[in-house]
Design a protein around this nucleic acid. Structure first.
Lengths: 235, 235
DNA sequence: ACAGCCACAATCATCAGATGTATCGGCTCC
DNA sequence: GGAGCCGATACATCTGATGATTGTGGCTGT
């Protein structure tokens, strides 16, 4: 077994046994390397592997710390695979995305904060303003779209759900989606659908929010692929 | 930005752009390091980080290869976090899992093959047989449970959905969560619920399959965490 | 006494070079 | 033609040195 894997397992075990706890700082590289019987290079490889799924966080000049472990972090690397999957299976990816996205909108209607509601509204206002401008900042529209959906996901009350949506509706997937969408000049229609979702949230109406969200995403899918009775799991 | 992150991003980009494809071998360390303008040490840190979520696989004396990327691999580290933080996070994971699982059951009812149906039935028969035995092979029961759900997911018609469920309901994430369940002797109740799902599938009744599946998973969640009106996104 | 600036020490980041070890593929010998 | 040897190749690991960044504690000026 590679030395770096030893490091990974050792640190994991130390965390499981409570020797290291969230927020703790790991021993200095040299010291930890010696105590594990590996060189600094191998140690750093192991630590690097642990930092990918967000188990540890290392800051130059300061030290390496155990993060506040939560299930959301390991979801991030999944976004890459989803992006990749989107090259050949975009339709399937969108069909899957629709499911949790709708389920997030439902509880969000019941528990979204006034602040988040305002923020969502501000985003929509900015979007329609940009759509009316001559420059038509495409990138910014995508940013807003992502952020709008993220606000909803984060108010669903389930961090895992929010993380999953981050992975499935990340930048790459969304960019591909908007490229074709924009060509049809669908900006305004999209804005209308977003607004309908916002109103349902503001009205604290879960069922309405669910329907508006489902309608929105279904519309997007149809304008991309047409209406094929093939495989999409119906909702 | 740390050099190792450069490596990670560069390799990721090369994969996304199709320069590197699953199964391909990466250039030799020295060569790749030079082309990215980093030292071998930094390169290895980056590669090490990529190997944790299973993006690449490196074999001594041979080379480093791009793996067959699927959504399951990046989620493997999540098992660790679930083990660690336990209840709080696990509940969220389960709540999220329920959503796509139910949505997979629906279309599966309409398109599942006779062969898959037979296989699912055989699994259930084996489960009830084992439950009746004195030895009571828990591990095998868990295997069967995973496989039963997998058969359904694979017949949903959406490979991405099947992958997602593999990730969320696969061995790494689920093993420990379900051990306690089976220790309570809930095997028989679980079997009854599974059978109800199977009957709905055999009857080609999507709505019935959805309900049976939702009922099943909800029951599991309740026996694990109790009925808390807290956060689970309602379905 | 307090605020702001500065130098120092601790710590991670990165590099270069050397040596060990596993794998694969071709060659030899039977 | 097949089994076994052998060398080229590639990763694995260590050592030692140097750069970059951060946090801290002391110093200074008001």
């Amino acid at each position: 077994m590679p030395r770096a894997d030893d490091v990974v397992n050792s640190v994991k075990r130390m965390i499981l046994e409570g020797v290291l706890r969230p927020g703790d700082r790991l021993p200095v590289e040299k010291e930890l390397a010696d105590s594990l019987g590996v060189s600094r290079g191998s140690l750093r490889e192991g630590i690097s592997a642990l930092s990918m799924p967000g188990v540890v966080d290392t800051r130059q000049g300061d030290g390496t710390y155990i993060t506040n472990l939560d299930v959301t972090k390991p979801l991030a690397p999944m976004g890459f695979v989803v992006d990749l999957e989107g090259r050949g299976n975009a339709r399937h990816v969108h069909a899957v995305r629709r499911i949790p996205e709708c389920e997030a909108a439902r509880p969000a209607a019941g528990r979204i904060t006034g602040e988040a509601l305002s923020r969502a509204r501000a985003l929509l206002d900015e979007a329609i303003r940009i759509a009316g401008e001559a420059t038509h900042d495409h990138e910014r529209i995508i940013e807003i779209d992502i952020e709008f959906h993220r606000v909803i996901a984060m108010n669903s009350g389930n961090p895992v759900l929010a993380g999953l949506l981050d992975a499935f509706a990340g930048r790459t997937v969304r960019a591909r989606l908007w490229r074709s969408l924009h060509e049809e000049g669908a900006d305004r229609r999209t804005h209308g659908e977003h607004l309908a979702i916002w109103k349902a949230l503001a009205a604290r109406d879960p069922e309405r929010a669910w329907i508006r969200m489902a309608n929105h995403l279904m519309g997007v899918e149809e304008s991309l692929y047409g209406l094929s009775g093939d495989m999409p799991p119906s909702t």
